[in-house]
């Protein structure tokens, strides 16, 4: 029986973690895995921290990724990577979008956004960081950033045997399919 694998996609409400996790879980199911995914809706959508938790293996019970258990954390925003650090498995990997979104207390001058997060995390764990929106913009649309990150995640998890192009075709509007396929492969090949 294969060990259950854990993935966390973390970010700020509105960054597109949901589509990325939809494609991911659909691909995993077709590859024959048991899959569970958990996300919390509600007030968190209004500028709050959001997380999508994906677990797969022969048999998955809990839908929640526990502390110290994520094989890969994909952070759509820097500070969210830091916030979820304690969920990374020892020896696990972080894929971090080199991008900052200022929370309200920082905007109001009540707190400061921590500086040098990516360098700080690199001292502790295996980090792949890049500007996903720039990669996506070069391909034609910054919104495909989520699929760039998905490509990098698939590479990090070694999920090469799944037909991801087919999953993108099945889950993305026709006019965005080519863009998202390119975004996926750009992220995969980083």
């Amino acid at each position: 029986m294969s060990e259950v694998k854990n993935i966390l996609l973390v970010g700020v409400g509105g960054q597109g973690t949901i589509l990325a996790s939809k494609i991911l879980t659909s691909g995993l199911m077709k590859a024959g895995y048991d899959v569970k995914m958990s996300e919390i809706h509600g007030m968190s959508q209004r500028g709050g921290s959001v997380s999508t938790q994906v677990r797969y293996g022969d048999k998955v019970y809990s839908p929640i990724v526990g502390k110290g258990s994520a094989d890969v954390i994909v952070a759509f925003e820097e500070m969210e990577a830091l916030r979820w650090l304690d969920h990374l498995k020892i020896g696990g990997k972080m894929v971090i979008n080199d991008h900052q979104i200022q929370p309200v207390p920082v905007n109001l001058g009540m707190a400061e956004y921590p500086e040098g997060i990516i360098e700080h995390l690199k001292e502790k764990v295996d980090v792949l960081s890049f500007k996903a929106a720039e990669v996506a913009t070069e391909l034609g649309n910054p919104k495909a950033m989520n699929i760039v990150l998905l490509g990098a995640l698939v590479k990090a998890m070694g999920l090469d045997d799944i037909d991801w192009d087919a999953e993108i075709e099945a889950n993305v509007k026709a006019k965005f399919v080519e863009l998202n396929k390119k975004a996926f492969h750009a992220g995969y090949n980083l």
């Binding site: 700020v12 007030m43 968190s44 959508q45 209004r46 500028g47 709050g48 921290s49 809990s62 929640i64 526990g66 502390k67 110290g68 258990s69 500070m79 830091l82 916030r83 650090l85 304690d86 969920h87 990374l88 020892i90 929370p103 309200v104 207390p105 920082v106 707190a111 400061e112 956004y113 921590p114 997060i117 700080h120 995390l121 502790k124 764990v125």
Partner: peptide, 28 residues
């Protein structure tokens, strides 16, 4: 969650990375 149940009955806590860098909350 599993962490809470495991700690309650087995007294086991997962090994984790820690950081002294402080995050800022994102209130909605």
């Amino acid at each position: 969650n599993t962490d809470i149940v495991r700690k309650a009955f087995l007294g086991v806590e997962p090994e984790t990375y820690t950081s002294d860098m402080k995050t800022v909350v994102r209130p909605p």
